[in-house]
């Protein structure tokens, strides 16, 4: 749910990074954090286990600049990907304005990707949201590893609607900002259509 504050001239938008465990959601945010100028970012919060698995969420606030005199702020969240954290995952989706699905390209994670995508749709539906109506992009991460499925295969399986998709290697930053920009752009276009 976007929050438009005419008094302080701010637009706030919430982006959620979704995907199976260990697919690289947290790594995406860490890279964005490292590569963003200090005045454009807030503190990154990671509520994680001792083994650095996301326990509740990661949170990174970005303020990118102004549009028509309004400061645009993006609040980036990741969900915990491990299957048994579903209750927490659902909570993070509340009020989402845009979704990034991070897929793990490794062949052995094919089923995990499909399951996670179905779980995303189910959880959105519980709030009465539909993925088809939300700004949404897909990232195929871990392209640097040897045992990956082809982009074609992944795309057929995970992206039947042909939403914007990006290959990535999150620790090196490949594809990370392209993914973020694509979803942010859709969100702003949406705002434009919504008419406030």
């Amino acid at each position: 749910m976007s929050f438009i504050n005419y008094a302080s001239r701010e637009i706030n938008l919430k982006i959620v990074y979704y995907g199976p465990g260990l697919c690289g959601k947290t790594t995406n945010l860490q890279y964005i954090y490292q590569r963003t100028a200090p005045d454009a970012k807030g503190k990154m919060i990671s509520l994680a286990t001792e083994t650095e698995r996301t326990l509740f969420f990661d949170f990174l606030p970005l303020s990118l600049g102004e549009i028509k005199g309004f400061k645009t702020r993006f609040h980036l969240y990741t969900v915990p990907g491990q299957v048994f954290y579903d209750a927490s995952r659902k909570l993070i989706l509340k009020g989402v304005d845009g979704v990034v699905f991070v897929a793990d390209s490794q062949a052995e994670r094919l089923d995990a990707n499909v399951e996670s995508l179905e779980n995303l749709q189910d959880n959105l539906e519980e709030y009465g949201y539909k993925l088809e109506k939300l700004p949404y992009v897909i990232q195929y991460n871990k392209r640097d590893l040897p045992n990956v499925s082809s982009m074609d295969e992944l795309s057929k399986l995970l992206n039947p609607r042909g939403v914007p998709e990006f290959s990535a290697c999150a620790p090196k930053g490949e594809g990370v900002f392209d993914t973020l920009k694509a979803v942010a752009k859709q969100m702003l276009v949406n705002l434009k259509k919504s008419g406030h």
Binding site: F3, I4, A7, G128, Y129, K133, L191, H196
Partner: peptide, 16 residues
């Protein structure tokens, strides 16, 4: 904007 979602819009008057 999206079904079942309404954005929060705040104007000066309400803000103050």
């Amino acid at each position: 904007m999206f079904e079942a979602q309404s954005s929060l819009v705040l104007h000066d008057e309400e803000f103050s």
